[in-house]
Design a protein around this nucleic acid. Sequence first.
DNA 1: GTTGAAAGCCAGTAACT
DNA 2: AGTTACTGGCTTTCAAC
Lengths: 153, 153
Amino acid sequence: MAEIDRIDRRILNRLQQNNRISNQALAEAVGLSPPACLRRVRRLREAGYIVSDVALVDPLKVGQRLNIIVEVEMTRDQLDIYDSFVRKMQAAPEVSQCYQVTGEVDFVLVVQVPDMQAYEAFARRDLASDPQLNKFRSLISLRREKFDTAIEL
Amino acid sequence: MAEIDRIDRRILNRLQQNNRISNQALAEAVGLSPPACLRRVRRLREAGYIVSDVALVDPLKVGQRLNIIVEVEMTRDQLDIYDSFVRKMQAAPEVSQCYQVTGEVDFVLVVQVPDMQAYEAFARRDLASDPQLNKFRSLISLRREKFDTAIEL
DNA sequence: GTTGAAAGCCAGTAACT
DNA sequence: AGTTACTGGCTTTCAAC
């Protein structure tokens, strides 16, 4: 699958808002018959356009009150150091996102924790103890004003 | 629904990884009969623990190559100004996340765009033109190393 | 909470345009 | 690529326990 057309985009837009819609309803919404629609959805999944299908849980409802944006500055720019740091972040359950960035800062993390105690434990365990990590800055957030996983197509 | 128990947490963990699992398979995975499992899932949705069910699309596959983390500093700390800024960010399709933070910075945005041209257009339209916005700093990312929507329960 | 049964809808296939 | 027709299976509900 090299390209996606308007109908594929309509399908993806719908499924990004609600992936529990029935194939029948989706087909009607995008102007296709159910089997034709189902074939497209399968192709979009198999070709990797749709990475996964997930339920989104309200963090506040389960006691995750804090979001912390962390700017990380490494001591050196060697690729292997980057890799080991990235692997550590990928393994850390507190880290929900990790971006490698250009400029003075090397990484930006989005960390989600119940409280400051949990964040301090994470920072000690995975940040402060890292010899390759030069310094990091934490921006504390009590309000996540927007969280939208959909990509406009 | 005041509290959730171990079984609810197991259900949420599963559905955060894959919400297309059949109720039968989910029931078996968490050690419940299908009707009992279905009732719990319905309760979790109605009580707002599950906010939404979505398909996650690969940004690179659809040409969204850039993530930009933006630190925004406002000129004043009035609530009504915050609100109008938040509303603008919520309406902007480029902004996938917006966090109000404490400290020198007032907001952190996660912006997703195809290229720098699209980002500059957004920054001009929604940031630089805002008289209440003092300054902003953009951290450019070409690599999103981790993006996990699941909350560990 | 479980089982068992019944109803209805839907996914998925097949055959065809 | 698309549609129509069909079937098997699953979700979902309702009982009774």
